Simulated assay, not measured.
Amino acid sequence: MDMYIHRDIEKTLTKALKQFPVCLITGPRQAGKSTLLQNFLKSYRYISLDDPFIANLAKTDPKLFLSSYPAPLIIDEIQYAPELFRYIKILVDKDRQNYGQYVLTGSQIFSLMKGVSESLAGRIAIFHLYPLSWNELQKVLPNSQYDTNLVSKQMIQGFYPELATNSQIDKKLWFASYISTYVERDVRNIKSITDISRFQIFIGLLAARAGQLLNISEVAKECGISQPTAKDWISILESTYLIYLLKPFHNNLSKRLIKSPKIYFIDTGILCYLTGITSEEQLLRSPQRGSIFENMVIMEFRKQYSLSSGYTQFYFYRTTTGIEVDLIIQTGPSIHAYEIKFAETLSKNMAQSLSLFKEKHPCQVSQVLSLQKEKTPLKKGISSIHWYEAIP
Rank of each mutant, 00 (worst) to 15 (best):
P248M: 10
K375M: 08
L37H: 02
E77F: 07
N39Q: 11
A81C: 08
K153F: 08
P362C: 07
R198A: 10
P72T: 01
K42S: 03
V187H: 07
Q212L: 06
D186G: 04
L283N: 12
L274I: 06
I74G: 05
V219D: 05
D76F: 09
F53M: 13
V183W: 11
Y388F: 14
I78F: 12
D195I: 09
E389Q: 15
N251I: 08
A81N: 01
I25R: 05
F159Y: 13
M350I: 10
L24Q: 01
V140I: 12
I258G: 02
F357C: 01
I328T: 10
N98W: 00
I258V: 15
I328V: 10
L57Y: 09
A207M: 01
R289Y: 12
P21L: 00
F53K: 15
D50A: 09
S353P: 04
T229D: 02
H6M: 06
N143E: 04
K255D: 13
E118R: 03
Y315D: 08
Q227I: 14
M155W: 03
L36W: 05
Q38H: 10
E344F: 09
F65G: 01
V368P: 02
S217D: 09
I385K: 10
W233C: 06
Y99Q: 13
G381S: 12
Q288N: 08
K172R: 14
R188F: 05
Y44E: 03
A351S: 02
I201V: 14
S279Q: 08
V183H: 09
H336C: 12
P161N: 07
A208V: 10
I25E: 01
T14E: 13
Q38W: 06
S180I: 07
R289D: 11
G122C: 07
R209V: 08
V92G: 01
T194S: 14
Y80E: 05
L37M: 03
I243G: 00
C363T: 15
I323R: 11
K171M: 09
S239K: 03
T376G: 04
R123G: 00
A207C: 05
E324M: 15
L73N: 09
Q304P: 02
Q157C: 13
F20I: 05
F199A: 07
K221T: 13
E10K: 14
P82I: 02
L13M: 02
R45S: 11
E238T: 14
L141E: 10
E359A: 15
T268H: 02
N189P: 03
L271I: 04
S384T: 00
M3T: 05
P228T: 13
K171Q: 14
Q372M: 01
R29F: 03
K379T: 11
I90G: 02
E218A: 15
I54L: 13
Q145N: 06
Q19L: 10
D326V: 01
G322N: 12
L173A: 12
W387F: 15
Y130L: 14
K341H: 04
P142T: 14
S384I: 00
S235C: 10
P362E: 00
A343N: 01
I225G: 10
S383E: 11
K171N: 11
K11G: 00
Q304T: 04
Y69S: 07
G290I: 00
L36A: 06
Y80T: 03
T321L: 12
